[in-house]
Nucleic acid binder design. Structure first.
Lengths: 226, 226
DNA sequence: ATCATTATTTAGGCATGTCTAAATTATGAT
DNA sequence: ATCATAATTTAGACATGCCTAAATAATGAT
């Protein structure tokens, strides 16, 4: 039995990723939502869904949306992996801002080389989260635990890793920058102001700072066991 | 007057680069040679030449080959720049071997982001030569002086930069690796064996070594003034 | 249950980039 | 100068991925 590795086109990859993204919110992805994500028309999406279904990446229930097959999900996770690793590279190594990387990563993720992506992963020290705090699947498609707790709900004395920003406006991102807070940092919750509940934080490296409850409600964390 | 930046397709870019490559050897590039480089057919190349001529990148003299216009050359130089910078990145940062990078760089060079390529150039410290010793155009398309002198012709006491390998077989590349010699290294020619003319070399960093005349005749260098 | 509305699919068309086969042009040997 | 040969271009076809417009299916309000 010979398996021919069939290269996916850029457009096919884009569709898989869009479906994956939409399935984070629900069990299946609807044609019009896919079309909107990709800035195309619904009829074009239908065509592509048929093709992807033929190739076994997608289960297409006409008029009722599409869902990834296990094979399709694997493919999508690899794309997400590539996208987020490149974003990490752009920010951590090339000094891009959080907000400048998406478009470029969108192109880089379609470069196809197993070796390249594994070397990049090594070079970046196997990051678990990208610069936006989104989890990076490992080479087998496993996702690290997603952050679900809010910094605002932490107790004094807890040690946590700041892993994501929820609904972050540019203003919020800039505020965090100005306080020296960045994704991936380990923080000790040193204290809590009685009057307004604001939190006193001590980063593992860098100066201590204070954030308001309003801000802390946008910051997702995972506990650090150590 | 509004200039619309017209994005080139991947195929258009490939053709420009092929023509550029062939023009290194002669004044114009012939249809069949372009076709051979790109693994397509001559008729496909003709179509593309007409298109590129319409867009002003190429001067096409039917039956007599094609030549880049200044605009086409600028475009081609930027592609060469991207290709060689990515090759440098793959080898110097990700630990790829000299011989493994071409195909991947071929994909990466088509990623379009002015900022990306300038940041990459900064990150790599503005290398003048890629891992094969080929010159990297700067952001304005200027090429560093190409190495023309052979190490074999150097005098004792000269300080030179090893910039390229001419007609390098895999065996030769491996021999160089084993002696710790790599593209870009600055070498002092410390001595010369009277009996067989072999050269004693002292790298700026790393252990001294000796290479035979046969080997030295394949190594291109540029003088280092310092 | 019907119907207006919305989502989706189908049908048919178009641009791109490739191909094969046929026609045309250039070239070098005689 | 002619002609066989090689290179090139032209003509016509096809797959891909997109579009618009029309037909069809699902949905929710009445």
């Amino acid at each position: 039995m010979i398996y021919i590795r069939r290269m996916l086109t850029r457009s096919e990859e884009d569709h898989l990723k869009a479906i994956y993204g939409l399935q984070q919110a629900g069990p299946s992805a609807f044609t019009k939502d896919i079309a909107e994500r990709l800035s195309t028309k619904a009829s074009s999406v239908t065509d592509m869904l048929k093709k992807l279904a033929d190739k076994g990446f997608v289960k297409h229930a006409p008029y009722h949306g599409a869902a990834l097959t296990p094979k399709g999900r694997r493919q999508a996770l690899m794309l997400v992996r590539k996208h987020r690793l490149w974003e990490t590279f752009l920010v951590q190594r090339l000094g891009f801002g959080w907000d400048e990387v998406h478009e470029v990563a969108e192109q880089l993720e379609h470069v196809s080389s197993e070796k390249l992506i594994e070397r990049l992963d090594d070079y970046l020290d196997h990051p678990a989260y990208d610069p936006h705090g989104d989890p990076i699947p490992d080479r087998d498609g496993r996702l690290p635990e997603r952050a679900t707790r809010l910094l605002a709900d932490c107790d004094v004395g807890e040690r946590v890793r700041f892993t994501a920003v929820q609904d972050g406006s540019d203003a919020l991102l800039q505020l965090l920058d100005s306080k020296g807070l960045g994704i991936g940092m380990v923080l000790l919750v040193r204290g809590r102001e009685v009057f307004d509940g604001s939190l006193e934080l001590v980063p593992k490296q860098g100066p201590a700072c204070t954030v308001s409850v309003q801000v802390a409600r946008h910051l997702l964390i995972t506990p650090v066991h150590a």
